[in-house]
Design a protein around this nucleic acid. Structure first.
Lengths: 212, 212
DNA sequence: GTCATAATATAACCAATGGTTAGTCGACGT
DNA sequence: ACGTCGACTAACCATTGGTTATATTATGAC
């Protein structure tokens, strides 16, 4: 750490930018926040941001990595907790995932607006894409643990998709809504929990009647 | 119809604009299409569009009314068809609704991006808002017909919400995807049908264990 | 036919957006 | 002291949705 005076300064503005962007993105989502707004909160010119981040999307990715990794760790811990039944694990995981996405509006973009992280680009996208897929993988594992054994791959994939559709629907609905996420959670946590129960029960029920 | 020569011309450009916008919106969605693009396809200046439509949103609404009304009629017919069981009706309705939304990307905006039709504005929004709510109402009725009687309002509302979440999830997923909707349908119609079955089975199953 | 009027259309413009370029200013090593 | 280099930014660009002043053209009165 050769912290010369200018390096310190650079570090500080970078931190200020990340802090400002983090707050604004989490609160209002990716699209509605402008680079100039971030700059104003960070106390610099909007062009300065481009010194440290390739573009708005890169800023989003940089900001998302840490929270996503934390979420990943948390989810892995839950998935490995043998004190819970598979069903409890799935419900807990879903809940964590939902709360995480609802508390950070930018996550809707990260997870579901895939055009933000297209496959054609080179590297910077890849890391977050990988993490994203790992997270979906964990959810898939949790789902797998709750379904009867003997399902073929296609059937299992279909159930996993249906689960993801519902998650995306919830997150999409309340990411766009103006209601603060605390109130959404307060009002609708029982509904979200019920949704997970419904899905689980429905998957099991239909699996019964569709060949083991 | 006092069709003077200028009225004819006006009518024609208006039709051209509607046609161009209709195609472009359906194919690529509301946000990604620009007024200048529409104008170019319609063969006029982008400012001309503002002669006939207040703004981009008004154009969207104008375009959406007819298809939505057609959908409404179709859905009402299905809902009133006593030759089907309630479950068949719900599944059919859901299918129709999904196919409709997937075939017209602009419908995602109309139905789910509620900021497009906020409550604060005066009139022009209201009509489409009303129609939208009617459509959701029909789906709700269909759901109600499939659930055990004796559910209290809150419980029923929760189930309806869960249903809508899944629909929005599906539509959101494939509205942003680049895959042409014909291929999506071909690939995933069975999954969509399964989703509706899962939801239905899950609702019934959980309703059993939660008081009547 | 001629001329005023009104409808139709558009070019020029505006502010905001994400992003780039050329250049300023202060710190650092020599 | 001085030249280089890093941090920063003002001025700029193209694109967006939208407005305004202006041109063009058809219509109707005389």
């Amino acid at each position: 750490m050769a912290t010369s005076r200018q390096e310190l300064r650079a570090e500080e503005t970078k931190r200020a930018i990340l802090g400002a962007a983090s707050e604004l993105f989490a609160e209002r989502g990716f699209d509605t926040v402008t680079m100039r707004e971030i700059a104003k909160v960070a106390g610099c010119s909007h062009t300065t941001i481009y010194l440290y981040f390739k573009d708005k999307e890169a800023l989003l990715h940089q900001l998302s990595m840490a929270p996503l990794q934390a979420l990943h760790a948390q989810m892995e811990a839950i998935l490995g907790d043998q004190a819970m039944t598979p069903e409890e694990r799935l419900k807990f995981l879903s809940r964590i995932f939902l709360h995480f996405c609802l508390s950070q509006k930018t996550m809707y973009t990260v997870f579901f607006m895939t055009q933000t992280s297209r496959v054609d680009e080179s590297e910077p996208t890849l890391e977050i894409q990988k993490l994203r897929n790992q997270l979906f993988g964990l959810l898939q594992q949790a789902i797998a643990g709750c379904l009867p054994v003997g399902l073929d791959d296609a059937q299992f994939l279909a159930y996993a998709r249906i689960y993801f559709f519902t998650l995306q629907g919830i997150i999409g609905t309340y990411t766009v809504s103006e209601e603060p996420y605390e109130r959404v959670l307060e009002r609708l946590t029982p509904t979200f929990d019920l949704a997970m129960e419904v899905l689980l029960a429905g998957c099991r029920e239909t699996a019964k009647t569709r060949g083991v």
